[in-house]
Design a protein around this nucleic acid. Structure first.
Lengths: 229, 229
DNA sequence: ATCCTTAAAATGGTTGACCAATTGCCCGTA
DNA sequence: TACGGGCAATTGGTCAACCATTTTAAGGAT
């Protein structure tokens, strides 16, 4: 099989091009030499050079335009589907909360349609555990489990996966300047009643009510967070 | 900048090739038709076909040998991350569609609230490109771009990331037994009017209508898929 | 001196012809 | 009949010429 030799050749072209760019002290937006010059300087056929350029362009490292030339891309290659860590770094708490409201309310609606009796039982148990929390840290842990239980109640692995991703980001973007007046949530902590309302709506198989209840809950959380910030 | 159009063209070629392979019931090790036949059947120039083939070869999906032909590789590539791969394997198309309806409708609602004028312009352009598609493969590619444009219109990086994940899974779970009565969507293809309704709702800043329009669109897509299965 | 027009040069993109490797068929010989 | 060699057809790979777009320079008019 010659494929490996071909790949090696392509890798050599890509390596040569990559090294050329690195050694050339090019800044984003700078124009690279023309193809016909590049192939000479790198000792490549134009075909092989163009293959390497095709790859670099598809990977967002460069952009090309007939008559203009070949340019180094700006550093953000329209970073769609980029690193989650990067996303967490740049995402504002406001946008994080908006995304939560958008997605978790929709998930609650789906849960009201699809929840099994076992899932509803699980919801109640995690809700009750949150109520019994002896510290804010414990409360927050069980609050997270409660929201996860809602996503599980959709009985949809894809929705659960998306919720988990959302939750990862939420945790990373968590607002850490919250001042607590006590060691633990009080008996009349607003979220308790909100959780009750969510569970009741899901148990009643009322998608619209579940949606509204989750929106109200997260809206309330959001308001509390940004008031105290 | 023409780079997006070029990438779109390459994506169309890759999609067409991918669809051809999927619909052709090829097993690992099977030989694909010769390039000159493939370019005819897919309606591509040889140059564009070879670019797509180059990409597939570099990604390990196929291998090629002068005088012998082009063959499907024996190994599954590491396409999506490990967890997502498992999810794709086990997720039923029905649940995939339910998740799409749940999430994408909520995203459309958010887009109606947050879309900039530029985002709306982008929506219109991708919508129009889908309408002009000359083949089903091209249509499906632009349809995907249209849905991505809706997620971008939310102006929320987290929602966009979640949409991308959803889309990855959607592609992997794609139903491959769709029978087409024609080479390309007809002028009165139902999705065109549905796209129009979605764009109009977002432009009108009407979240509820955007939500309903996207639900209706995806419900319609779903019904079409599962009727013909 | 400045501006406009036109043509030439420069740039990336495409194509048809040709090249290199492989396969299959046909013919000749044992 | 079986085997081997040669040749034509088939296959993917490469290349020079050409194409389409953009930039630059030169010449003419004001």
């Amino acid at each position: 099989m010659l494929t490996r030799l071909k790949l090696a050749e392509h890798d050599a072209a890509a390596e040569a091009l990559s090294a050329f760019i690195a050694e050339g002290d090019y800044a984003p937006g700078d124009r690279l030499p023309p193809e016909r010059e590049l192939m000479e300087r790198l000792g490549l056929s134009r075909t092989n050079l163009r293959k390497a350029l095709d790859t670099f362009e598809r990977d967002g490292l460069i952009w090309r335009h007939v008559g203009k030339g070949t340019f180094l891309a700006s550093q953000e290659p329209d970073g769609v589907g980029g690193d989650l860590q990067e996303l967490c770094r740049e995402l504002s708490p406001v946008k994080m909360m908006r995304a939560r409201v958008c997605i978790e309310a929709a998930i609650a609606r789906e849960a009201a349609i699809n929840a099994s009796n076992g899932a509803i039982q699980n919801l109640k148990e995690t809700k009750d555990r949150a109520r019994k929390a002896a510290s804010w840290a414990e409360y927050e842990h069980h609050d997270g489990l409660f929201h996860c239980a809602v996503a599980e109640a959709t009985d949809n692995p894809l929705l659960l996966t998306l919720f988990v991703q959302l939750n990862l980001v939420r945790r990373a973007v968590a607002v850490s300047n919250v001042v607590r007046g006590s060691d633990r949530p009080s008996e009349d902590h607003k979220s308790f009643a909100e959780h009750e309302r969510i569970v009741a709506a899901i148990e009643a198989r009322d998608p619209a009510e579940a949606y509204d209840a989750m929106r109200a809950h997260l809206g309330s959380v959001s308001a509390r967070l940004f008031e105290e910030a």
